[in-house]
Simulated scan of single mutants.
Amino acid sequence: MYALCERYTGNRSLSFVAGFNLFYAQALIAPSEITAASFIIQYWNDKINVAVWISIFWVSIVALNLLAVGVFGEVEFWIGSIKLITATGLIILGVVLFFGGGPDQHGVLGFHYWKHPGAFVEHLVPGNTGKFLACWTSVIKAGFAFVLTPELITCAAAEAEHPRHNLPKATKRFIYRLIFFYFFGPLVIGIIVASNDDRLMSAIAAGSSGAAASPFVIVLTQLVTP
């Protein structure tokens, strides 16, 4: 990253900052993912201390990285497949609810929540400025997910089969996956959950980052609760 940025801009100071920023972001990815996964499990089983789940995931990740690249790649493939299938299923669920296909759902939901209470909420200051700040704050926080950008695909060139053929194909497909998950995912969330939902707001107020704060968990709980 340092060399590429310096080659592109000719600025060594900027390239150093960009390289250090990438290192810092990637250093946070594994701990944040481990913590998120542990809190999600704790939501379904709160009898075991979350530190136990964090330790299990941490040891598992270290062990996988010590195995042969073929084993690591196979595990990564199946874990990634589960993630993609789950995300796709949740988006399909949102489409079904959009057209009124949920249990005991009367009529088409449509963009009802975009009208009442509205698609944007105020943040820090009232009025349209507050709505803009809320949107901008969400963009800043979501930007962390873009650390895994397409250039990291090329890092697997030395370990991939037929890299001249497979890597360009995988990189070109990245934009389509990005559009699908990062556009339709937030769109579905905005459709199926009201911005002022009590469960969502209470989770945010409590600083919850586990499954209880997930809009999908909120809507699924609402569907199965009589």
Rank of each mutant, 00 (worst) to 15 (best):
Y43T: 04
A158M: 09
G70N: 10
P215N: 05
E76M: 05
E161M: 12
A27C: 00
Y182A: 14
L200H: 05
I61D: 06
I92V: 14
L28F: 04
T225S: 15
F77G: 02
S15A: 08
A203I: 06
S214M: 07
S208M: 13
A18I: 12
G130R: 10
G89I: 07
F180S: 10
N11S: 13
V52G: 03
A3I: 10
F111T: 15
W136L: 01
M1H: 13
F77C: 08
W78M: 11
Q105A: 08
I61N: 10
P226E: 15
P103Q: 04
D46R: 06
L152H: 14
T86Q: 11
I179N: 04
C135P: 01
A68F: 13
S208W: 00
W53T: 06
E74C: 06
V95F: 14
L4V: 12
L133M: 14
F144Q: 02
I91C: 04
L14C: 00
S209N: 13
F120Q: 02
I61W: 01
P226H: 15
Y2K: 12
P186H: 03
G10M: 09
K172I: 03
S202F: 04
A160N: 04
Q42R: 06
F132L: 15
G185W: 08
T221D: 03
G130W: 09
L109D: 00
C5A: 14
I41F: 14
L178Y: 15
V96T: 11
G127S: 02
P168Y: 07
F120H: 01
L90N: 00
I40N: 08
G70E: 09
P186Y: 07
G118E: 11
G10Y: 05
G80S: 14
A194R: 05
N65T: 05
A206H: 10
P186G: 08
F77E: 00
I40Y: 03
E74H: 05
H162N: 15
V69D: 09
A211R: 07
A205I: 08
K131V: 02
A145W: 13
L64C: 03
V224L: 12
S13N: 15
T149L: 13
V95S: 03
H116Q: 15
V59C: 02
T154V: 14
L178C: 14
A156E: 05
L64M: 02
L223T: 12
V147D: 08
I218K: 02
F120N: 01
E6D: 03
P168H: 03
A25T: 00
A212G: 09
L200G: 02
F77A: 09
H165G: 00
